[in-house]
Structure formats: structure tokens, C-alpha cells
Amino acid sequence: MKQEITEKKIIAMTNQVFEESFEIETERLQPKMNIFEDLGLDSLDIVDLIVAIQQKFDVKIRNDERVRDIRTLEDVYRFIIILKKEVALSETKREQQKV
């Protein structure tokens, strides 16, 4: 069974994605920051962000409708936390079925 990552770790890894992919300074990565108005991402940057998040967290979110509701950095954290929980849950179910 894969080791579950903590929320704190998810936040740190998400910030890392913003730092690496967009070279945004760490100080600006505050949860309440609007990723469009404050951080300056546009629709094409969102595609890059999705790709980077997929690689970083080993998840699939390309067609996830919930991405459209993301506005702030906090929304991104929350979205990934939920996503990781869903992945963990489905993995547990699968393992239980195997047993």
C-alpha cells in the first residue's frame, strides 16, 4: 500500500510546482492568492499547471470538471487533497477486492 502524504506535504509540493513551473517567488504563494488576478496565470498556464500537478502527484485531472472552480491557491491545495484521498480510497477498495 502506498504511503499517504500529509496535507502539509501536499501544500509544500503544490507550492513547489508553482515555483518550478512558473518561477513564482515563495513569498507570493499565499493560500488566499487568486491564481489568475494575483499570480497572473492564464488559461494556457492552467494547462501547464495541470500537466505539472499530474506529474508531481501521479494523478489524472485533465478532464476533471472541478478544475473550472479553482480560483485561489487554497482551492488548488484543497482540490489535490480531495483527489489524493479519492485515489487512496479507490486503491484501498481495489486491494480489499483482491484479498
Binding site: 518561477e23 497572473g40 496565470l41 494556457l44 501547464d48
Partner: peptide, 11 residues
């Protein structure tokens, strides 16, 4: 430069 960095540099 990445496009994001470039656009902010020009801005």
C-alpha cells in the same frame, strides 16, 4: 524562459 516568466518580464 518559460512563457509565464517571459510575459511577466515584459509586463
Amino acid at each position: 524562459l518559460k512563457p509565464f516568466k517571459l510575459k511577466n518580464m515584459v509586463r
